[in-house]
Simulated scan of single mutants.
Amino acid sequence: MVSYPHWHTVPLRWKDNDVYGHVNNVVHYALMDTVINTWLVERGGLDIATGPVIGLCVESHCAYHASVSFPDSLRIGLRVAHLGRSSVRYEIGMYSTADVLVAEGHFVHVFVDRETRRPVSVSGKLRESLAELLLPA
């Protein structure tokens, strides 16, 4: 299993299955977004409702390797591949309870001023929390 500094287990829901009997591809994207933003709010202090800085997704990708279905859970690994001045590239791995790689992807945030939507420097507690997810070079 690939190394991730943070793991989050998410139980799958009945409604996550599609008509083919497996978790629909859009659910994987929603889970990536949820795990990332949970980290940003809980560890980075990001105030998504009224804070002056927000993260905008400018790129995302997901490669699917195996099927998974309710009532399984996914163990989702999170790491930072690149931490720039105003952007961050996350890498995410999703594993079944049997440690089978289900999907892996990446997600790029650019942090911007809430009002102007212009890029801002990632700093303070937010930068510190993202640095925790960086793997050693």
Rank of each mutant, 00 (worst) to 15 (best):
S69Q: 12
V112W: 03
V102H: 08
L135W: 05
N24D: 14
E42M: 03
W14L: 01
P136R: 00
R114F: 04
P119H: 05
S121I: 08
Y20D: 06
H22P: 13
Y64V: 09
S87K: 09
L74I: 01
P119M: 02
M32T: 01
G84N: 10
V58K: 08
V26E: 15
S73H: 06
N37T: 07
Y4L: 10
R13D: 03
A103C: 13
L12I: 00
P52D: 11
E128H: 09
A30V: 04
A81F: 03
L101H: 10
E132W: 00
T9F: 02
R127F: 03
R114P: 15
I54L: 13
R118Y: 06
L130D: 09
S87F: 07
H65D: 01
S3K: 15
D18H: 00
A30R: 14
A66C: 05
H61E: 13
G105Y: 13
S60F: 04
Y4E: 11
N37L: 11
G21Q: 03
D18T: 02
E104K: 13
H6M: 06
R79E: 11
R43G: 01
I76G: 02
V112C: 10
N37A: 07
L40F: 01
W14R: 00
T97S: 10
G44R: 10
E115T: 07
I76Q: 04
Y95A: 04
P52E: 12
V112A: 09
I54N: 13
L46N: 04
A103L: 10
I76V: 00
R13V: 00
E132F: 01
K125R: 15
L130M: 08
L40R: 06
E128Y: 01
S123K: 14
Y90S: 12
A66S: 13
W39H: 12
G77F: 05
H106M: 15
A81G: 10
